[in-house]
Simulated assay, not measured.
Amino acid sequence: MNKTNVEKLFFTDHGAIPNNPDLPLVLYRGILSGYIESCAEQFAINNWTNSWKNGVFDYHHYHSNTHEVLGIVGGTAVITFGGEQGEAVEVNKGDVVVIPAGVGHKKERGSADFKVVGAYPNGMDHDLKTGKPEERPKVIENIQNVPSPDKDPILGRNGPLIEIWSHVNRN
């Protein structure tokens, strides 16, 4: 795998979408170049499993009980991360996004061939939350209790995600 540009995005609680108070979203630009067809397998090698291949929902949502990785395996899209007041980010084939538990995401627009492979650390089953008031305070507790993964979904034990997220005091 090709080491590449790594970006970190931090989001605060916006009310409906809690985001994650401790962990940044991590974006790897172009890291999958040449490995598009083996994206799910690469995630699985690093214990990010329960994978799927599709797109990203066109409404704000998040997962309170697990982190999520998205490997962009086709096309381009603009995804807003962090809820209504979040940040619109263009992603392209070859990019990987690691979304911490609680961080909202919504596809704003995408090319006709936009496709992602998603997976979760330790094969977690994810919940689907949309920011309804009745979801709190349980989701806040869930987010705080999600363990950090043992491996970066692309680069394993020595990947940037492990270094970036290791500075957070988690259970």
Rank of each mutant, 00 (worst) to 15 (best):
H61M: 01
M124L: 11
K8E: 12
V96E: 00
H61F: 00
V146G: 03
G118E: 05
S38V: 10
F81T: 04
N46C: 08
G15F: 11
E134M: 12
V73I: 15
K93C: 14
G86A: 00
G118H: 02
G34F: 01
P137C: 00
W48M: 06
K8H: 12
D113P: 04
L9H: 07
K129L: 13
V78W: 06
T76I: 14
T76V: 14
I45F: 15
N54G: 13
S33V: 09
E135M: 14
Y120C: 11
N65Q: 02
G83W: 03
L25T: 11
Y62P: 06
G71E: 02
Q42L: 13
E108V: 13
D13Y: 10
S51H: 11
L70S: 03
F114H: 05
T49W: 03
L27R: 04
V73N: 05
A44N: 13
A44E: 06
E108D: 14
N65F: 10
S51N: 10
G94A: 06
T80W: 03
L128T: 10
C39W: 05
I31K: 08
L128F: 13
D13C: 01
N20D: 09
V73C: 04
I143K: 03
I45D: 09
K8R: 15
V98G: 01
V139K: 13
H67C: 01
F114N: 08
N122D: 11
T66H: 00
Q42T: 14
Q144S: 12
E41S: 14
G71H: 10
G110L: 03
N92R: 10
N46L: 00
T12Q: 15
H60G: 11
D113E: 14
Y28I: 00
D127N: 08
A77Y: 06
P133R: 02
N122Q: 11
N92L: 10
A101M: 08
V117I: 14
H105R: 10
N122Y: 06
N142Q: 12
I72T: 02
H105T: 05
V6W: 03
E108P: 04
L25V: 10
I99H: 05
G55F: 08
T49H: 06
R136T: 08
E41Q: 09
V117A: 02
V97K: 00
K129M: 15
E135K: 15
G86C: 07
A119I: 07
P137T: 00
